[in-house]
Design a protein around this nucleic acid. Structure first.
Length: 603
RNA sequence: GCCGAGGUAGCUCAAUGGCAGAGCAUCGGUUUUGUAAACCGACGGUUGUGGGUUCGACUCCCACCCUCGGCUCCA
């Protein structure tokens, strides 16, 4: 078999990359040890939790007598620098039989360490290892730098509460997050990325660009301003276009639904606490957190034939989820959301094709954004319904489709929904952050719970399968993500105001309005800046609003029925014929190009 | 829900127990302009809400609301 030269190159660079990853992980893990030692210097009574390396850095959890302050962090960081300067060797100090190790940690008053040792599986062997640098010794599997002097550039970032072992019934410890890199340049670049993310915060941009705002009168629900709504509509139009070609039919279903439906679906048992429940005279009703059971009611309104299937419903209804207050976050986590929800009722023998269709629609719908989807296969959770045999079959099916599609995917053990496994799709944004987007689920449970059936070719009754998916996920969240991805500089097809017409003097107002109408008639979103301001001021304003195209109109343009466009990128032209200009924008808009540039704001 | 931080004019931010202020925005006027900010003036506040301490509270204390960073959760 011939070996592709490119493949060798890729393997080699992958090996290099993973060697570098190992090195960074060892360094960050070592930094965590040094931080623990420093914390013990400041708080001799501190009890230690765990301290792993993570993406971009490390953390360590502590039980401390009082909350940490920013001053404490500085002090701890200084003590770490002192260790770094002291060039202390990291050494494998000893291996102790479990009982002795437990005794040692009891003596040191480290109950969390005792618990870790007690819970180590037998397969880890009869002894546990300890590592030391300076006077600090910690229970540890190993994987360190040779010496504290090898720690590169680091910084302690912030503190946060974290439950011991991630269990909310256990004590809450104080976690200190830090970051560590080989060089100061890499550290600076990372800190720049954090700063850049802060600047792109969608809550800030949403207000500055007049897209959406949040108000305490309706917490965790965005108020969409005209400009935000324009983005929403552009997204919705694209979603409908994608689904129309794929044979979907749009439905709309009620928000307020009696609890019996949720009992049948299983949501009442599993998510009752996260539903808004209302008193409906002598009934109990809930605001719907999901569309599926209602699509099912539509399915059941008539006898279905095998010839009717697949039936594909799209539903853009509003959903309500009573999220715990602490999880709310701008557009990312809201209590009222709208999905581009899709439900396909199909025969078992059509399922593979429907999963293929779903994956292809994900690719298609993401293409104009420049998003490259990756997947996670989320398998059976602890809290679930259905037999193991069912889960096995369903998981394999999803895996096969992913393999076949070639989409890169990872496993998310136990991450499935209570009624079935799912494919979660995520993307990486311009700053290297990952966002979970679409989710695709093959569901055998709801059809059974609702006793769905269709008449088969042989005259018998068969049970359909439901494929659930949402590609944007929720519109709210998606808008938040793309606001940050583009740093507010939306490509033409998404820009709330696509063209700002800038008359030079008041005598050009009539012509400016004529230009606006020409653009609007062509289906573009255009406005005239009719203020009695200087042209430069209007351009600055439009530029700050990240409007992709400005057109200046003055005497020369008016005479020639032309415009003088200026792009957000700074590029400008004089005296372009109005017809040509409109036609050019119309075609770029229709093609949903990433134009003028997607990431110009990042540069 | 839990841990921590925060909330002053529409926005960004000053004022640490003693007269709540600036820039931008807004409004009025002057200016009519060729590719990123014209000039002059005016308006704007129950300092998140409610209680308390004090001669006096933006400032100190308590409760609540909202937001942010995390943890847990995410059908």
């Amino acid at each position: 078999m011939a070996i592709d030269a490119d493949e060798i190159g890729q393997d080699a660079s992958a090996a290099l990359a993973s060697g570098r990853e190992d090195h960074l992980a060892a360094m960050r893990h070592s930094a965590a040890h040094m931080m623990a030692a420093a914390v013990l210097e400041v708080f001799p009574d501190a009890r230690l939790g765990i301290g792993p390396a993570i993406k971009d850095g490390f953390y360590y959890d502590f039980d401390l007598p009082r909350p940490l302050t920013p001053d404490d962090l500085e002090q701890i960081e200084e003590k770490m620098r002192a260790q770094q300067a002291a060039d202390l060797a990291f050494e494998h100090s000893r291996d102790l039989p479990r009982e002795e190790a437990i005794g040692l940690n009891r003596e040191r008053n480290q109950p969390f360490k005792v618990e870790i040792i007690q819970d180590l599986p037998e397969s880890e062997g009869p002894t546990v290892s300890f590592y030391r640098h300076g006077t600090f010794e910690d229970l540890c599997r190993g994987g360190h730098l040779e010496s504290t002097a090898q720690l590169g550039a680091f910084k302690l970032l912030h503190t946060a509460g974290a439950y011991w072992r991630g269990d909310e019934t256990r004590p809450m410890l104080q976690r200190i997050y830090g970051t560590a890199w080989d060089t100061q340049e890499e550290l600076d670049r990372y800190l720049w990325r954090i700063e850049e993310a802060r600047k792109r915060d969608h809550r800030k941009l949403g207000r500055e660009l007049d897209l959406y705002t949040f108000h305490p009168e309706s917490p965790a629900a965005p108020f969409l301003h005209p400009r935000g709504m324009a983005i929403w509509r552009a997204l919705e139009d694209w979603s409908r276009e994608v689904r129309r070609g794929a044979g979907f039919h749009e439905v709309r279903t009620p928000s307020l639904v009696r609890k019996e439906l949720w009992e049948t679906s299983g949501h009442w048992a599993n998510y009752q606490d996260n539903m808004f429940v209302l008193d409906d005279y002598d009934h109990v009703s809930g605001l719907k957190p999901m569309n599926c059971p209602e699509e099912i009611l539509i399915y059941k309104t008539r006898a279905r034939s095998y010839r009717d299937l697949p039936i594909r419903f799209a539903d853009y209804s509003v959903l309500f989820r009573k999220e715990r207050t602490g999880v709310l976050a701008g557009m990312f986590r809201v209590r009222q959301l709208t999905q581009d929800d899709s439900h396909v009722f199909c025969r078992e023998d059509q399922l593979d094709d429907e999963l293929r269709l779903a994956l292809s629609l994900v690719r298609k719908q993401y293409a104009p954004f420049g998003f490259e989807p990756k997947a996670r296969l989320a398998t059976r959770p602890e809290k679930r319904i259905g037999s193991d045999e069912f889960w096995e079959r369903a998981e394999n099916r999803l895996r096969d489709r992913l393999e076949e599609d070639g989409m890169s995917y990872a496993l998310d053990e136990g991450g499935g929904a209570f009624y079935g496994p799912k494919i979660d799709i995520f993307i990486e944004d311009a700053l290297g952050r990952e966002w979970q987007m679409a989710t695709i689920q093959a569901d055998y449970q709801l059809p059974q719970r609702f006793d769905l059936e269709y008449r088969a070719a042989d005259g018998g009754f068969e049970r359909p399968v439901i494929v659930h998916y949402a590609i944007y996920g929720s519109f709210e969240r998606f808008i938040g993500i793309i606001t940050e991805e583009y740093a507010g500089a939306f490509p033409l097809w998404l820009a709330p105001v696509q063209v700002m017409v800038v008359p030079i003097a008041d005598r050009h107002l009539d012509y400016a309005e004529r230009v606006r109408v020409a653009l609007a008639d062509a289906g573009l979103r255009a406005e005239v800046d009719s203020r009695s301001e200087r042209m430069q001021a209007k351009l600055r304003e439009a530029q700050e609003q990240k409007i992709p195209v400005m057109v200046v109109v003055g005497d020369r343009d008016q005479e020639a029925t032309a415009v003088s466009p200026r792009l957000r990128t700074g590029e400008s032209h004089q005296g372009v014929a109005l017809d040509e200009f409109v036609a050019d924008l119309v075609s770029r808009n229709a093609a949903r190009e990433l134009w003028p540039f997607a990431d110009e704001a990042a540069s």
